[in-house]
């Protein structure tokens, strides 16, 4: 068959079949239909949704104080399906935080931080913090009164931490006030720095499950 031959031709060069089959084979756990154990997968799907809609939004979004709000208006009212993509990104963000939180609570109360799951727990908790970072940095980007003052307040709270507060404030704001330097900084965090780290951690998080097998609930 032609397709078989083509696949073999590529497999000879890329050697992709074996790892691909490994990634695709899924022993069906009897817990897979239990809603309690679905929140990891739901979080993953929502994360993929955030990546796709986020990439699309970044085509039109302009991270400057003059244009941020205008570009969001443009996306919402002018670009075709812009309102939908934006709403998907916004609601997806809230839902992702929610489902990550539920996932975390279940893992915590079921004791899924015990051997051999320590690293899953640690990477998972870091991922939770990163998703909060996503939410925090993304909140400023529309550059509305609400998001502006929310950022002022939250960074002010951060400044209250003893010893490191002042430096933390400078790090978050990129200056003394919330302005252009804060906006571009948050944009970079939201669309570049946090995504890179969370994708690395996510790969690790899933890789461990795949290598070790899904644990039977304790």
């Amino acid at each position: 068959m032609v397709t078989r031959k083509t696949v073999d031709w590529f497999d000879k060069r890329l050697r992709f079949k074996e790892p691909l089959l490994f990634m695709m084979e899924r022993p069906f756990s009897k817990h897979a239909t239990d809603i309690k154990y679905c929140f990891g997968g739901i979080s993953l799907i929502l994360f993929i949704n955030q990546v796709i809609t986020g990439l699309l939004l970044s085509i039109y979004y302009v991270p400057t104080p003059q244009d941020a709000y205008l570009s969001i208006q443009y996306i919402t009212f002018e670009v075709s399906f812009g309102w939908l993509i934006r709403a998907m990104h916004m609601w997806g963000a809230d839902l992702m935080i929610l489902s990550v939180l539920i996932h975390l609570c279940i893992a915590y109360f079921k004791g899924y931080y015990r051997k051999p799951l320590e690293l899953n727990w640690i990477s998972g908790f870091t991922l939770f913090l990163l998703s909060l970072g996503f939410g925090f940095s993304g909140y400023l980007l529309p550059w509305t009164q609400l998001s502006y003052w929310a950022t002022v307040i939250v960074t002010d709270i951060a400044a209250g931490i003893p010893y490191i507060g002042e430096n933390l404030l400078l790090f978050l704001r990129g200056g003394m006030t919330v302005d252009q330097s804060t906006l571009i900084r948050f944009y970079s965090f939201h669309t570049k720095i946090i995504p890179v780290f969370s994708m690395l951690l996510l790969t690790l998080h899933l890789w461990m499950i795949k290598r070790r097998g899904i644990c039977v609930p304790l």
């Binding site: 796709i52 699309l56 085509i59 670009v79 075709s80 399906f81 812009g82 939908l84 993509i85």
Partner: peptide, 10 residues
């Protein structure tokens, strides 16, 4: 389809 039409300016 949606994503594609989103990418083209109005």
């Amino acid at each position: 389809i949606m994503s594609l039409s989103f990418m083209f300016p109005p």
